[in-house]
Design a protein around this nucleic acid. Sequence first.
DNA 1: TTGCACACGTA
DNA 2: CGTACGTGTGCAAG
Length: 916
Amino acid sequence: MSETNKPVSPAGDTLTATAAAPEENSSQERKRLLVIDGHSMAFRAFYALPADKFSTDTGQHTNAVYGFTSMLLVMIREHKPTHVAVAFDLDTPTFRDQEYSEYKGGRSKTPQEFHGQVDLIIKLMEAMRIPTISMDGFEADDIIATLATQGEAAGWDVLVVSGDRDAFQLITDSVTVLYPKKGISDIPPMDAAAVEAKYFVSPGHYSDLAALVGETADNLPGVPGVGPKTAAKWINQYGGLDGILENLDAIGGKVGDALRANVEEVKRNRRLNHLLRDMDLPVNLETMLLQQPDRDAIEELFDALQFNTLRKRLIDTFGGEEQVEDTEVHAPQHVVLTNEKELDDWLDSTNQLPVAVQLVTEQTTAGDDAVGLALVSPSAAAYVAFEGLDADAERRLAEWLEDLDAPKVIHDFKSAYKLLSVRGLELAGVVDDTAISAYLIQPDRRNYDLADLAQYHLKLSVASAATSGGGQLELSLGEDDVAAPAVAKAFASLELSEHFAGQLIERGANQLLAGLDLPLSWVLARMELDGIAVAVDKLDGLLDGFSTTINAASSEAFRIIGKEINLGSPKQLQTVLFDELELPKTKKIKTGYSTDADALNDLIAKTQHPFLVQLLAYRDASKLKQTVEGLKKSVAEDGRIHTTYAQTVAATGRLSSNNPNLQNIPVRSEEGRRIREVFIVGEGYETLLTADYSQIEMRIMAHLSGDEGLIQAFRQGEDLHRFVGAHIFGVAPEEVTSEMRAKVKAMSYGLVYGLSSFGLSKQLKISVDEARTLMKDYFARFGAVRDYLRGIVEQARKDGFTSTIEGRRRYLPDLNSDNRQLREMSERAALNAPIQGSAADIIKKAMLGVDAGLRAQKLSSRMLLQVHDELVLEVAPGERETVEKLVREQMAAAAELTVPLDVSVGVGSNWNEAGH
DNA sequence: TTGCACACGTA
DNA sequence: CGTACGTGTGCAAG
């Protein structure tokens, strides 16, 4: 869209550009500049707050960042600056170091916990749109002095925040220094009077005084025996240091001798503590105008830092949700289409250019219902309310919605498709789903709300409450309350779509969108609408059984410990296990010692304590019970469960399932499988069919690494773990014991997750040495796997991202972090993402193939579930063989790997039976 | 009421 | 000190 045909309305109030300043009345008020010495205040904050109480769970300490931010917010609140800037020292030597090599010497090294925090503060300032300034060869103090001088010259008030007393020399009628007394909460202003009261000299003479007395913090010794009192006396007597130096001989006594002996040092001190006021700075004062923070960047950063209360304080400080009134960008002016003619004309006028569609929904007891839609083309905007449309208009609308040749852009296609389908409308011809596009560009975002994306990518504010409605609101045709926000949203998605188009091509992701994720969205919508049938009558039986187990286990557990506690409370369990029963300590967690199943089993092995056995039984049964209860609540009117697949959640490209999650229904335990039995074939269908890839991730590993050994194993169709075990242990495949096989299996899978020898030893309960040997032997036989894994991380560190076979990227900026924990986490993610993500690509492709095949052959069978490497289908009578063949073919053909993709299929009247 | 921590189910 | 998810519970904060 070009600037010229951008729809513009005179008074759009739902879209605003946020780059504008919040200051409304700065004209009559004097401008006020707040300049902060970044390092100095970060240090103050660091020592004011306990480092061990402020850290993220990745081990990054944040106490300095927290304290700095808190202090900054207080400053902004209390002193209401119109302009703010932060100056930082650089690590590079300054002119002062050149003049005096011991300058600031003798300072202890910065504590390890301080590391990285200044960088975080700089990032934060960026997010707050506050300029940070540093200059090679100069200190922050010089920058501050220069800014203070410039500010004063411009007739502004200047507030300098610094923990360095040298700043006192800057104090004038309009320059005040805020000097922290202690901590970060007590930062009183120092004006001329305050300096005089404390040091008995005017601020202009403070540097003279410091030169005579010396400054231990800077490693500048002064004249021995001369303290502030003597120095002040001389300064006032001779009118400053120059006067003193001219009258050296007139000063008597021992201190006079000492002064004469140290004249050069004093002169040097004075040169060093003199702040430069005329630096050539790369920014001017106006760029320091205090602006609204970049909300998205703040959100992102505060998420990473795990600052939650500060987030609110920051928003409050900047005036809550209120946005600036500036409106350079306007919502398009829309027309309301009420009949066939208007619809027809409007749609014709779009000239086959993409039209953004935004549904307006209303909350009903049965869920959301679509009541209308906003349409925005590059040149026009419209709103259509469903109510009151005559039959012809309805037909014209339906025709357009399902027209494959009428290109549409939509945000969250799947939801819209489902909403429209309830009204008997089919949505087709969608060329972009901006939620999915955004996901492909940035797969690790927390949410893909349209308003957030518009803000983040376009700097466009879209009212977020656009689709509410809220029931009591009377809906009348063309009412702006309903239409305008929806139009604004549609406009935003059209803009986003265009914004993303280039980026998708740049990243080679347009094929992923158009050929995979977008068409899949339609398939998923159908699967969600279909749902899976449930034997509701069986649920209560299961519930009873689990309840019985729970009751038995808990009363026995209470009898053993002689009292009743809440077995579901880890806190109470810790007290019982470690304080009262005095069992050995398990692995440490944040709140004490772990009581998870692993830890409890260890304790059983060590102590045989009967309480533990009952506790585990209780845990098992209550987990199963709660799973069943969840399912029971999810059964819809039609006797089926309709999960929702999230297509933009998993950073690797996988789907996720929620409301309820059908991707984590128990399967490993016998009782768990009873739950699978309640998922049954629906009426009118013959059977359920499950098809899953066997060892798809290891096959991808074999393919990507090109390891001849692994490839051979898969080509021979052998039991992989037996094959690998035979090679590692140097025995014949049939001599591989089940113990050996288990070890190999754990290791093979562990490799895909970036397992360390330590982790392997823990999982297999063997020594680290043994685990290390195991891994060594593994890599000795499958060297290409090691090379591949190494290469992946190296490449990702260079590129900043990993790629799947289909080119799906995952960005991992922390691969270069100097926080070890963060870096190593990213390294493991980098190892895993191409493999897990490629598997996800493959099954998505298979789903498209299966769906296309079912339709091409006009079969009535349908796909119901996807569980990462498994598909569940409902087979119509007489179609079993055809469907099995189709599914096998499509799944096997979903990728061309150097190893075959093995698919196993099972059928049965319920999910458990159909599984294998 | 909300958010965190824990625990645990799946691939 | 093994990746990717979602959900329920307890509990302390608001």
